[in-house]
């Protein structure tokens, strides 16, 4: 029942580079340039050009197999990019609110399933549960682990705010004296 032609995937306002970037930033396994080209709807050479550019600027890393280069997101870059994104798109107060909301979500799961953590909930996934119940718990395990990891990043971002405030206070033009570079 799938349509014979590829669907409209990318919006017209995305250029080739943006499409190649979009395709690579959601990878869960290393991929080669052919796949990226097809997914981004660009030709092979264009895909290679941007993939190599992303490797050069640290966004992607590569692994070689059978003389094929495959690309995947640099995990350190992903970590810092998400940290920066959280700080850039949230005030400190918003981050603090989010931290509380995430902790409440986790507590609710702990209470509902009577487990201490997601790992413990995962151990309850067995054939004694119906398919529906297993599916529901799998979703909760996924969401729980994910929420905990985002919470770690949010904590880091809150600390960043504190550090940035302290840094700005000791390094402001007024503090440094005349000719401070701000």
């Amino acid at each position: 029942m799938m349509t014979p032609d590829p669907p409209a995937v990318w919006s017209d306002d995305m250029d080739s580079e943006e499409r190649v970037r979009a395709v690579t930033e959601t990878l869960t396994e290393p991929r080669d340039a052919s796949w990226a080209a097809e997914q981004a709807k660009v030709d092979y050479k264009t895909a290679r050009k941007y993939l190599e550019k992303f490797v050069a600027d640290g966004r992607l890393r590569t692994v070689e197999n059978d003389r094929t280069t495959r690309y995947y997101p640099n995990p350190r870059r992903q970590f810092f990019a998400e940290l920066e994104n959280l700080a850039a798109t949230h005030t400190k107060a918003e981050l603090t609110d989010e931290l509380i909301a995430m902790s409440e979500r986790i507590e609710a799961w702990q209470e509902t399933y009577e487990v201490a953590d997601a790992g413990e909930l995962r151990t309850t996934l067995d054939e004694s549960l119906s398919v529906e119940k297993r599916r529901e718990r799998e979703r909760v395990v996924d969401d729980w682990e994910y929420t905990e990891r985002v919470r770690t990043l949010v904590r880091h971002a809150i600390r960043l705010y504190d550090d940035l405030e302290r840094f700005a206070a000791t390094n402001s033009p007024a503090a440094v004296g005349a000719g401070g570079d701000g």
Binding site: T26, T28, E29, P30, P73, Q78, E82, Y146, L153
Partner: peptide
């Protein structure tokens, strides 16, 4: 390669 994000927070969010 298996050590990369592969489903962790940033990928899911992206």
């Amino acid at each position: 390669p298996v050590a990369f994000d592969g489903g962790r927070p940033r990928t899911r969010k992206r």
